[in-house]
Design a protein around this nucleic acid. Sequence first.
RNA 1: GCGGCGGUAGCUCAAUUGGUUAGAGCCCUGGACUGUCGAUCCAGAGGUUGCGAGUUCGAGUCUCGUCCGCCGCGCCA
Length: 596
Amino acid sequence: MLKRTHNCGELRLADVGSAVRLCGWVRSYRDHGGVVFVDLRDREGITQVVFGVPDDDSEAAQQQYKLARALRHEWVISIGGEVGPRGEERNNPKLATGEIEVLCNELVLLNRSDAVPFEPDEYHTTSEENRLKYRYLDLRRPEMTKALRLRHQICRVMRNTLDEHDFVEVETPFLTRSTPEGARDFLVPSRMQFDSFYALPQSPQLFKQILMVGGLDRYYQVVRCFRDEDLRADRQPEFTQLDVELSFCSEQDVMDITNQVLRNICELCDKPFPADVPVIDYDESMRRFGTDRPDLRFGMELVDISDLASQTEFGVFNGALGSGGVVQCVVIPGGAVMTRKETDGLANWSKEFGAKGLANTKVAAGKTLETGVAKFLTPIAEELIERTGANEGDLICFGADTKKIVQRVLGELRSKMARERDLVPPGEFKWVWVVDFPLVEYNEDMKRLDVLHHPFTSPNMDDWETKQDTPTEMKSRAYDIVCNGMEMGGGSIRIHQPELQRKVFDLLDIGKEEAEEKFGFLLNALRYGAPPHGGIALGLDRVVMTMIGAHSIRDVIAFPKTQRGSCPLTNAPAAVDEQQLTDLDLKILTPPAEKQ
RNA sequence: GCGGCGGUAGCUCAAUUGGUUAGAGCCCUGGACUGUCGAUCCAGAGGUUGCGAGUUCGAGUCUCGUCCGCCGCGCCA
């Protein structure tokens, strides 16, 4: 194998005259009969290679030119030749190497390629399914190569930053035990103990806490996590976290080190990162944005008008208020241009989030309201416009329901409208910490309290001591880092005293026996001198997505799964041999035909 | 589990109200061409319209079912 002297992205005018050897894939070819051009691609770029009619009549030279004319898309070749200038009128400004070309004097065919289902260049697109099925072709696209290489660099920055702060990377088990609550576990049957199962970790949460008890002091890990839940554009069944845990720390210590990691990542990616990341508490975020992951790139905040609404004769408003609900609104700048069909569509869309509908009105000239529910709003029109700051040409959308539903719907509406109506300033990155989450919330369906973060999160101790009778008012010591409306990570100060942990389990109605059975090992560990500790986990996939502006998490993962959790490349998941089932003492109960 | 959108040549798409032999570009094959750069020109090959029923004289088109993909809801402590 003849060694490359250069890659396909680095030759410049200064190299003219050099003898070089390049290897790569035929991205395109242009056969003019007497001269053949090949654009040769590797991960670094594209270089034009020129094959001219050979001067000598030797068999070898003729054969080589014949081969050059036979080259097709994605064939793999090695070429030797001399770098030549293209000359001003022949430069290709689209290529970094566009001022030179390599005049080939030796061509070696390393491999042929079948006709490709799609050409991996910027001009051709194909279905998501095809991209995954032929992922090796898709990965040759510069965009994908770039994404994976940036992901690598981001990982390196994470490791370097934490290494500089004396963190130790420790691996934790993938084969572990199933723990209750949280997401559904992926199970792995045990052969040696045929009636038992391992579970793949949803996160290394318990192990990293035990590492703190073990005196590691500062731990991190770039680690795969597994959750068997349905997929979304930003969710895969296996995803990667930067998992971090520190001993003897406060919230501020965790936030400081996280900010440092993110700052270095943003510097790498040439994106801004603020000297001071804003911090808002959960209640404020819910009140102003209707969500715990606010997008601060635009305004359109929620405005409560319950007091004004009660002065109207509008049944929808009064009905909501009468049953203890609220009336709030969001102003959509320029939204008055929306048609009746479009606003009806919004009302229908709002039902996905539990709303009964979405009243609206338009702000017309002279600060008057028109269309929609305008006729009900006459008595409050002036003050409504004043309070919301709405302008002529805006659309005001109202939510009237329980506070929870109204915040949810208007929060979603705010994001949707900003996105769809181009109200998001391009190129902005708005980071924000959301803190003081409630410790628990009441689960209406199950008639019990559920944790917001996880059951090892420390309560705010003042609240814990004073609000035992109203647990939903207690705050926890949890925090989330959010960028542009996407949750990038979250963590908390943990409980390090076994007595408190036990009491929190009690609050969650996790019985003594169950706690002992499922979390006994953690409770035991806490009894042997567990230091105060806390940490965070950042979603690597989402950080990379944000940095490159990807719309799908699949675009930053080399081999992702489809929405139904299958892999078109390998056809996983797949049936296994009968013998494998026998070894595990497993039996498929539903015959394949009935599953459909 | 539910809702929305989609599935026609290897790829991207078209096909009037349900009406003749389902077309075009790219790719591929053969040919022409000494400066292209998403080369161009000529010719050719290439189809179970995702799959299965139904309605009809006639279905790519209408109906039902089903599979797959994408987006969302539920779910994701």
